[in-house]
Design a protein around this nucleic acid. Structure first.
Lengths: 347, 347
DNA sequence: TGTTAGCAGTCGAAAGGCAAGAGTGCTAAC
DNA sequence: GTTAGCACTCTTGCCTTTCGACTGCTAACA
């Protein structure tokens, strides 16, 4: 099943060429690219053999070859195994100056930067995971029987939500609840909170209700039902010829339109640092591909950032950009001290 | 310049027919629709006359006629002048049960409902106007020198923002600032606050800085730079044949992609209850039309809700749906009491 | 003067045919 | 195992023809 080194070289050249031109690649084109002396006839016989092995197809008999999913996967393996290209993406580091910023603004801007740098549509999902570390919880009464719960983490304010609280409990009630809840939650992740099975007794019992509601809120985030999905650069897809056919364009936009489905798709690959998914077998319709990377800000895991585009995608560039974003936002190449978050990088 | 009643009738039938079929309408088709006995030759001469007047064009000599912008505008005038169709849109009233909900969730869902009911792409912009009445402002310290400002209004929590505060001011500082700020802001609109020229003196002087920052925040909202734009049902555009040409589709998606521009476009028509804009002269490219309506929740003006689609749009339906949404959300047909917001309706 | 039937004329869309070009597979020779 | 040469296939573009849909015009009629 292993390919000869010549086959590998030819296949690699063909994939790269096709990524660039979106046209079937002929034997004579490869001859040009090959470097050493070799005849097109030899290449033709290699191409025929690669086709037999399932790496290539011919749209029709008098056309060149185009790569199959299998070929892309092999190509991507090589990209991931090799050194990442060093890419500097303008405008990213500006966000790192301020430590506390509204997380959604950072995310929206990150998405835009990724889209502009890669020229593909980018998607970021804020996964409300139970790995996020809570810095502080604030309960603020906003109306009779209603309170706003604000959950602050290392990476900013995640979300605010309204909960019901008991009425007629006196003016000190909310303040006291605040203290109790913070004793229990501050500095912990939801995972820890759930696994720790806190003991609530004596005076604390009266806040049991609020405690439960906050855990419920946190779990609601963690369940993924509330994942927030940000899409930027939708119109970039039109720059790629596969979407000049109206049917493909429609499928693509539909995918982006259904935010929940898209969010799920982004997160189904689990905890992989950087994952590349190609075509139908990976749950993507209409010969699309998706490259996603873990997305952390200053050590706190936020969710996934990624790119979605045609199967014929510039994987090398996309992987490099995402890798760079990952590196910068994780804070690992920054002198900034990070108190309590783990830092994860690839290298 | 006034049209004969027969011309008006023919033009009306033609526009409606074209809205339905997206095909040029022939004289014999109109003959069928006309009801009374009339020959196609007569209609042809009327059509020729309407073309001369600028209401119709012929794609080519052996085709039927299609309406021009002028014809649509006349048609829309009639739609707006006539009785609104009574339309009941499923799923809207569910949101009105709870009074305080996160405003963004309501908006997102409203947008989806509008899109589903009309079968066009819908856009809602939350205009951070200075007409929004502030219920309460909460300042919460989140970090040394950083505080989270939460602005609550009748229609929910609008937004939270981080501001810098003086360091080393003692633990009571933020609490006291809260009281001062609320004395000044609660129950007022930004407009009132700005026009009132509050006098800040004595003890209050030390909070001057915070006061200014909050006013700045509010003004930033009001300036419109921070308008939030929600788009739903992007893929619906593909259901309409004008977007089966890739160029048009691209223009349309680009328009939706540039959220700031889109937001501005939505709000440039000022304070009109329900506005219809058709084609280039109204700032829209690629024969698009846009119908927007004032969008209030329980008396508090939120922004604009609208629909964007091809020039050949079912204006009658769209206007009815938006009118219904407006009516329901304004709270005017609901028994729910509304304490301090003005209620505005059309009828 | 307005309305109508009839007819010639125009133009687009679809279908068919032809030529050019691109690229392959095969074969035979090295 | 590699290569040159050649026949073969299939797409693409272009042109022509045909068909059909509508119109505008004209002449007759109320």
């Amino acid at each position: 099943m292993d390919l000869s080194s010549r086959k590998r070289k030819i296949l690699g050249l063909l994939v790269e060429r096709y990524i660039k031109t979106a046209e079937p690649v002929s034997s004579s084109e490869i001859k040009e690219l090959y470097g050493e002396e070799i005849s097109s006839a030899t290449i033709r016989s290699e191409l025929a053999s690669l086709e037999e092995l399932g790496y290539l197809v011919q749209p029709h008999v008098s056309a060149g070859r185009i790569p199959t999913e299998l070929a892309y996967k092999l190509y991507v393996e090589n990209v991931l195994a090799g050194e990442k290209k060093e890419i500097e993406v303008a405008g990213v580091r500006d966000y790192l100056g301020k430590k506390i910023v509204e997380i959604e603004d950072v995310v929206r801007n990150t998405a835009r930067v990724i889209s502009d740098a890669t020229n593909y549509t980018s998607v970021i999902v804020i996964k409300n995971t139970d790995e996020i570390r809570i810095r502080e919880v604030k309960i603020v009464e906003v109306d009779a029987g209603k309170a706003l719960v604000i959950i602050m983490t290392d990476s900013g304010v995640i979300k605010d939500n309204i909960i019901d609280i008991p009425v007629n409990m006196g003016s000190g009630y909310v303040g006291a609840a605040n203290n109790v809840v913070n004793d229990l939650f501050s500095g912990r992740t939801l995972k820890e909170i759930k696994s720790q099975n806190m003991n609530i007794d004596g005076e604390m019992l009266q806040y049991h209700d609020i405690f439960d509601k906050i855990v419920n809120l946190l779990e609601e985030y963690a369940s993924g039902r509330q994942d927030k999905v940000f899409v930027e650069g939708t119109s970039k897809m039109f720059d790629h010829p596969e979407f000049s056919e109206i049917g493909n364009a429609k499928d693509f936009i539909k995918l982006l339109d259904e935010k929940e489905k898209l969010g799920k798709l982004m997160t189904t690959d689990g905890d992989i640092e950087l994952s590349v998914r190609i075509g139908k077998p990976d749950g993507l319709d209409g010969n699309c591909s998706m490259v996603t990377a873990r997305y952390s800000i200053g050590g706190a895991e936020i969710g996934k950032a990624g790119v979605i585009g045609p199967e014929r995608m510039d994987y090398d560039k996309v992987v490099s950009v995402l890798h760079y974003i990952q590196k910068v936002f994780s804070g690992s190449d920054d002198k900034k001290e990070n108190s309590n978050g783990e830092i994860r990088t690839r290298d």
